[in-house]
């Protein structure tokens, strides 16, 4: 779409936090690319930096967290160099929007849906009159498949169910003509059947409006059924990325393998699930060089001396590990 072939490009990003007990390294991402109309999944455990990544893109980092290096390119411009005013007026909630785990916290409880949705439309289309704005708002609610949009318009957020609130937020994102949607565990608090409706909607919007989505979750099964591409985040670094099938069927990194092996599935009934030894590294005291070296069962001196880079093993699949570059599917799990 347009002259820019990439929706979002994150290059060499480094994010650090100043705390009372020292400097914490939060993110160290060499490259992360989101194409137009594409849904990219970011999977990782809590503490892997998934949410910090989302907040960095939005320019919403807490005061003690700093970007020390790198670029976030959107339409060829580096978002990190923009000032707060530009981010607020042009980017955040306009070109790039975010939906959170708790939709109630993102809607104002004292205004109706009509009020909140109309104000977004008004800012975007200042020439429209009241009636046209109303029509447009109805159209938007229809687009996100809310049944009976006219009734929903006059409701307050507390009168809506979790799934409906999330849909209203997506409608607001769409009426702001957002190009990129960041979904941070947006379906976690929802019921399973409602969750599916939301992810189907995100998929459809991607096809219809070329909306690109960064889909952040810790649920591998969910990510795998939504996204075509997956990046696995471990302690602030992308340790493996590839097409969904590459990750699910031919995972190379020990961490990804253990992650998959630890998922309970029907076939593993009656067996003991393999567990990765060790704890998640503290952000204040990460292992030197290979970030996974303190838990890795096949660690060598090389891993402690040199930092592995994300290197391609096929067109779509890259892994950040010195070992395991040869295909060995039978050795699943640690």
């Amino acid at each position: 779409m347009g002259v820019y072939d990439r929706a979002l490009e994150i290059i060499d990003l480094e994010v650090k936090a100043k705390t009372v007990s020292g400097t914490a390294e939060l993110l160290n991402i060499k490259e992360l690319i989101l194409d137009w109309g594409e849904i990219v999944g970011i999977v990782g455990e809590s503490g892997s930096g998934k949410s910090i990544l989302a907040l960095t893109i939005m320019g919403l980092l807490p005061k003690n967290v700093f970007v020390t290096k790198g670029k976030i390119l959107y339409k060829g411009e580096d978002l990190l160099k923009k000032d707060e005013k530009f981010m607020r007026e042009k980017i955040r909630g306009n070109e790039i929007t975010m939906i959170f785990q708790d939709p109630m916290a993102s809607l104002n409880p004292v205004f109706t849906v009509k009020n909140q949705l109309s104000s977004v439309i008004k800012v975007k289309n200042p020439k429209l009159n009241k009636n046209e704005i109303y029509k447009k708002a109805i159209e938007m609610l229809d687009l996100v498949k809310l049944s009976d949009p006219e009734m929903t318009m006059n409701k307050y957020p507390h009168e809506l169910s979790g799934g409906m609130r999330q849909r209203v937020l997506i409608a607001m994102a769409l009426s702001a003509q957002a190009k990129i949607l960041i979904s941070d565990e947006a379906t976690r608090a929802l019921d399973v059947t409602i969750q599916l409706g939301i992810i189907k909607l995100i998929q459809e919007l991607g096809e219809k409006f070329n909306l690109s989505t960064l889909f952040i979750s810790s649920n591998m099964a969910l990510i795998a059924s939504v996204c075509k591409k997956i990046s696995v985040l471990y302690s602030g670094e992308v340790i493996e990325k590839g097409n969904t099938n590459d990750i699910l069927k031919e995972a190379r990194h020990v961490y990804t393998k253990s992650f998959l092996a630890s998922l309970p599935t029907a076939g593993k009934k009656g067996t003991v699930l393999p567990i990765l030894e060790g704890n998640y590294p503290s952000i204040l005291d990460k292992p030197k060089n290979c970030i996974f070296s303190d838990r890795c069962p096949i660690v060598t001196d090389e891993c402690r001396d040199k930092k592995p880079t994300l290197s391609a093993i096929s067109d779509s699949h890259s892994v950040s590990c010195f070992k395991n570059l040869d295909s060995d599917k039978t050795d699943k799990g640690a």
């Binding site: 599916l196 059924s225 699910l248």
Partner: peptide, 21 residues
Amino acid sequence: ALMLAIPSIDSAGNIKKVEAL
């Protein structure tokens, strides 16, 4: 319908097709 609506992966890494209820 409920089983179809819940995403899951099997041991071989195949994704189950999901369908909304």
